[in-house]
Amino acid sequence: MDKLRLLEIFLATCEGGSFAAAARTCGTDPSTVSKAISRLEAQLELTLFQRSTRQLSITAAGQRYANTVRKMIQDLTTCEHELKHLNDAPSGTLRISSAVCYGHLYLRPLLQAFCQRYPAISLELEINDLHVDIIENNIDIALRTGYIKDSRLVARRLSPMDFLICVSPEYLATHGVPSCADDFQQHDWIGFRIKQTQLLQPIFLPDAQGEYQPYELTSRHITDDGEAMANMCIDGLGFAQLPHFLAREGLESGALVSLYPCYRPPHPDNGVFAIYPKRDYLPTRVRVFIEFITAALEAQGESTHHTWAESLVPMIRFQTAPEG
Rank of each mutant, 00 (worst) to 15 (best):
L46T: 04
L46C: 09
L46G: 00
L48F: 00
L48N: 08
L48K: 01
L48M: 01
F49Q: 07
F49K: 02
Q50C: 10
Q50I: 10
Q50D: 13
R51H: 13
R51S: 14
S52H: 06
S52R: 03
T53H: 12
T53K: 13
T53E: 15
Q55T: 10
Q55Y: 10
L56S: 00
S57R: 15
I58N: 00
I58T: 00
A60L: 03
A61K: 15
A61F: 08
G62Y: 08
G62R: 13
Q63M: 01
Q63V: 09
Q63D: 09
R64D: 09
R64V: 05
R64N: 08
R64E: 05
A66M: 09
A66S: 08
T68C: 07
T68Y: 07
T68E: 11
V69G: 05
V69D: 04
V69H: 04
V69R: 05
V69Q: 07
V69P: 02
R70M: 05
R70G: 06
K71F: 12
K71Q: 14
M72N: 15
I73V: 14
Q74D: 13
Q74M: 08
Q74A: 15
Q74G: 11
Q74V: 10
D75V: 07
D75P: 13
L76F: 12
L76I: 06
L76V: 01
L76A: 15
L76P: 00
T77L: 11
T77V: 00
T78C: 11
T78G: 09
C79D: 00
E80Q: 10
H81R: 12
H81A: 14
E82A: 07
E82S: 00
L83R: 15
H85A: 09
L86V: 03
L86A: 14
L86W: 11
